[in-house]
């Protein structure tokens, strides 16, 4: 979860958003984090560099729980 949050922080920082936020399994990538498709593309590249898994390769990913499932994280 720490690593995922770090990646999200870096994506938000690149957009000029520096406020901290609480990350839970229910946090929605689009609605809560405000990610558009370009942010999601960057998110998947950075996760893949870290975990070797492309989370969007097999279907939709809505929230952090979906991300963790795709990455096989508990």
């Amino acid at each position: 979860m720490e690593k995922i949050k770090e990646i999200i922080l870096s994506i938000r920082a690149n957009k000029g958003i520096n406020e901290d936020f609480t990350l839970t399994e229910n946090t929605s990538l689009r609605d809560d984090l405000g990610f558009d498709s370009f942010d999601l593309a960057e998110f998947t590249v950075k996760l893949e560099a870290e975990y070797g898994i492309d989370i969007f390769e097999t279907g939709l990913v809505e929230n952090i729980k979906d991300v963790k499932d795709k990455l096989n994280l508990k």
Partner: peptide, 9 residues
């Protein structure tokens, strides 16, 4: 580069 969200990133 090929990307599953945008086609290419």
């Amino acid at each position: 580069r090929k990307n599953s969200v945008l086609g290419n990133i």
